[in-house]
Nucleic acid binder design. Structure first.
Lengths: 333, 333
DNA sequence: ACTCAGTATGACAGCGATGTCATAACGACG
DNA sequence: CGTCGTTATGACATCGCTGTCATACTGAGT
């Protein structure tokens, strides 16, 4: 599946359809466009001619001529096999669809280069706005898109080195909540299965935990495991942690992937004394399993991002807005 | 969020930018398009003028003039907050992206009217192909789109009253597998928490079960509960079933939503004797919970659908192809 | 001083549709 | 029979941009 150039099937034009139907350009246009003032007979002939030729309206020309504007928004996320991203995408779609705006989606697979390629591609094509969950650590390049008039909104992760709208969770508070919850439950050997070290969301969560745990004099730095963005890595880390001489009595999962890995590993070793578990994000199965989590409203994040994008599209000079969505502790079991 | 007409912000044109920058139309075009042969100084002036005016390239005009073709594929699913759909979407995106084809997504919420609106909308705009998980029970209307030259591919549910490519699971075999598995485990009170009665997938699954169970002389019709497309309804049904005088000893969940509801309910009444559980589809949490399921490869379905769409786009007259993806029993616990 | 290759710019046509306006054909009406 | 409103059709300009080609300028090489 390499990047084969798209072979473009020969397209026929309205003029050809008109000729074949023996009518003028405009009449053909009317027939196909469902306008009034075309006799049934003519319309039939035109439709038949169009079908014969496999005619398909050139939307670019159509939009241009009619002065309409193809509004479309691009959404770049990591990978929406991950429910976090797909929930976000669903919410954005929801917010955007009633306005007859199209949503074009793309997955960066958390690759910085891929993300930038996608962003440029979407921008070049049609997108009037971009909502991105960025894998980049520096967003200065996005200013090029902004100056082209494209509204850029960052979701889940704030923009770095760039003035742009954003929506993020209050991750630091989330970290505090998680840590405090475990502290209250009497834990003092607390592990963290974290995400990529460079992720601001993760850094904030960790910082929030640090505030609380350090203040309580808890030793925990040795139980931090970074860079587990996938369930597999997370599982491996859990395995290691539980083999320690002095294993953690509680484990915090930095995101829904690591929570999945953690849960898998614990399920596999059912019988052994299991540590307490708390996760970030709230995938649907966390509820079923009765896992306590710290989470914000992902759908609300999506809606907010879409709203910001729409606002900026209609008013380019409005002040930058940074929406912060609270995180809450959801106690279960 | 009613269907507010999109307020169109006053747009400036390339001509205005050029005038403001004191250059010709073409030079402005070059500067903005990143072409060679523009002095740095000029480029700067043009960029500044563009920024001042909030200029944004009219992509319709651009595409038209350059003869490029905005190739894009539309994907209509129920709702990709449902992992089944989002996995499918991710796979389609995967297959399509390397060919620099855009994927425009839309959720029908399983509403027939909504689906048709979306299909028309996507078709009118740009989509050269449509991949749809349809909520309709009659697809004759889609022939209009086909005759406009749009490749239409049905995923998960076959086309009715229409010749079109499709990819579906072997749901009947799936039904047989599920039933046989429970039979082998010695069950004879087997309930089914089903989906919408009209869904062909569900009907097939049920028919497959019926083949096996009827042949074995098992009475089970009274334990069928239809129309549980969401987890909530499913949960309610499970509650009812378990309250029966002679409750089922095994419950089959017709899709991942009903499996979720079922699992929730069972978790809630932990302690009581729980029935055996088997689900259709294989959401990530089924593995964690050790739930036996009957499932096919959703990603493969997405890839196959994308491939069919691409094939039909490049060769409109090829014979209709119906891909059937096997379902397998995944034993757990 | 004279080419020549490379750089920078602009004039102009044309992409494929739709909007506007003009015109033709057709009863109906007084 | 002339007038008028309605229906059906076509000619033509136009949407905003990019491709092509022509032109002008620059400095290096001889």
């Amino acid at each position: 599946m390499a990047a084969t150039p798209q072979e473009i099937p020969a397209r026929s034009t309205l003029a050809q359809v008109a000729e074949r139907a023996g009518v003028s350009l405009k009449t053909a246009s009317r027939a196909l466009g469902g306008e009034a003032y075309v006799s049934e007979e003519t319309r039939g002939r035109v439709l038949a001619a169009a079908a014969d030729l496999g005619y398909q309206r050139n939307s670019a020309a159509s939009l241009l001529a009619s002065g309409r504007l193809a509004v479309s928004i691009g959404l770049i996320t990591g990978d929406f096999a991950n429910p976090f991203y797909s929930t976000l995408a669903a919410a954005v779609e929801d917010e955007v669809r009633p306005r007859t705006i199209h949503l074009s989606v793309a997955n960066s697979r958390e690759s910085a280069e891929q993300e930038w390629l996608l962003a440029q591609d979407l921008a070049d094509r049609q997108a009037q706005a971009l909502i991105v969950v960025s894998a980049l650590q520096d967003h200065a390049a996005y200013s090029r898109l902004q100056s082209r008039g494209i509204a850029v909104v960052f979701a889940d992760r704030t923009a770095m080195n760039l003035d742009a709208d954003s929506v993020v969770f209050d991750n630091r508070e989330g970290g505090r909540l998680a840590a405090q919850h475990l502290l209250d439950a009497g834990h003092s050997r607390i592990a963290l299965i974290g995400d990529y070290e460079w992720l601001p969301t993760y850094r904030e969560r960790k910082a929030g935990m640090a505030e609380v745990l350090d203040a309580a004099g808890v030793q925990w730095r040795d139980l931090i495991r970074n860079d587990a963005h996938g369930a597999l890595e997370a599982r491996q880390f859990v395995r290691e942690l539980l083999e320690l001489e002095d294993p953690p009595t509680a484990v915090v999962a930095g995101n829904n992937r690591s929570l999945l890995g953690l849960t898998q590993e614990l399920a596999a070793r059912k019988g052994h004394a299991a540590p307490a578990v708390i996760g970030f994000d709230d995938p649907e199965w966390a509820q079923v399993l009765g896992i306590t989590v710290v989470a914000g409203d992902v759908a609300e994040m999506g809606r907010a991002a879409a709203r910001l994008a729409l606002l900026r599209m209609s008013e380019r000079s409005r002040p930058i807005e940074n929406v912060v969505i609270p995180m809450r502790l959801i106690r279960r079991d």
